Simulated scan of single mutants.
Amino acid sequence: MMSEFKTSQAEGLIPNFVNTYELEERAQKVIPADAFGYIASGAGDEFTLRENDRSFNHKLIIPHVLADVENPSTETVVDGDTITAPIILAPVAAHKLANEAGEIASAQGVHNFKTIYTTRSYASADLPEITTALAGSPEWFQFYFSKDNEINKRIIDRVKALGIKKSF
């Protein structure tokens, strides 16, 4: 017997998380187990996932002792956009596994967090809907080439018309 898949409807701010591992633990509490497993895992034997963690953990952050410790800030500037922290939403698939509103909910969250959203070519929401949900927050676009140059041209024209400044 096949069961019906239900996705999360959870929304709202997640106060006081310290790192992305803690954020992942909180997400696991509201996203259905099968969906969370897909989202949190890597492809194949997860070699790339392990290497990403290893590479990131190899970089040391050396604080400047006694430098502006009263009011620390995670704010940074990326390509002229000031963001609240060096965290950018990458172009990921299957947003609707995490929340029934999919990319729209993700875009709204990115806007509230004040960082950069990266839309993927084959999102489940329409590009103008995502851009509208971002309410002026910076948006990048991941472009996958099609064998059909007319399709490529239509996609790039839409991206330009929406004012998305970065495509890669």
Rank of each mutant, 00 (worst) to 15 (best):
I130G: 06
A67R: 10
G163P: 09
A10I: 07
L23V: 14
D45H: 02
E129V: 08
I156G: 01
S8E: 10
E4M: 09
K59W: 09
K114M: 07
E150C: 05
M2P: 07
G42A: 08
F141C: 06
I88G: 02
E139P: 03
T84N: 14
N152C: 09
A98G: 06
A161F: 05
V159T: 14
E24P: 00
A90W: 04
T82N: 15
Y122D: 15
F17R: 11
L97F: 01
L49Y: 00
S137V: 15
E25T: 01
E150A: 11
E24H: 06
R54H: 13
F17L: 09
F145S: 11
P15H: 13
Y144T: 14
N71W: 05
L97Q: 06
S167I: 15
F141H: 10
K166S: 10
K147R: 03
L89M: 06
A98K: 00
V77C: 02
A43L: 08
G102T: 12
H58D: 11
S146G: 08
S121C: 11
I31R: 00
G102H: 05
E75L: 09
A93V: 08
I164W: 06
L60Q: 08
L89H: 01
A90L: 11
D68R: 12
E139S: 08
I164M: 09
E51S: 07
S167Y: 06
N152I: 08
S8A: 02
L60S: 05
V18K: 03
V69M: 11
A40D: 09
T20Y: 07
E4F: 07
P15I: 13
I14S: 04
E25N: 00
S167P: 01
Q9N: 07
D148I: 10
P15G: 09
D148E: 13
A161H: 07
K153W: 06
G12R: 10
V92F: 04
Y38T: 06
P128A: 13
S55R: 12
K114L: 09
L89F: 01
W140N: 05
S146Y: 03
V18L: 10
N112G: 06
G12F: 05
N57H: 11
R158P: 07
A105T: 03
I151H: 05
E46G: 01
V65Q: 14
P63V: 12
R26T: 10
L23Q: 11
P63I: 12
P91A: 15
E129F: 00
G102Q: 09
I104D: 02
A101E: 11
I31D: 09
I151Q: 10
A101Q: 10
I87H: 01
L162E: 15
L162T: 15
S3Q: 14
P15S: 11
I151N: 03
L49P: 02
V78A: 04
I61T: 04
L127V: 13
Y21A: 15
R50L: 11
I88Y: 03
T115P: 03
S124F: 12
Y122R: 09
A101W: 00
L13Q: 05
G163A: 12
E103Y: 01
E70A: 11
R154L: 07
V30Q: 06
M1I: 13
T74W: 11
F113I: 06
E139M: 04
S167W: 03
R154F: 00
I130K: 01
D34V: 05
S3T: 13
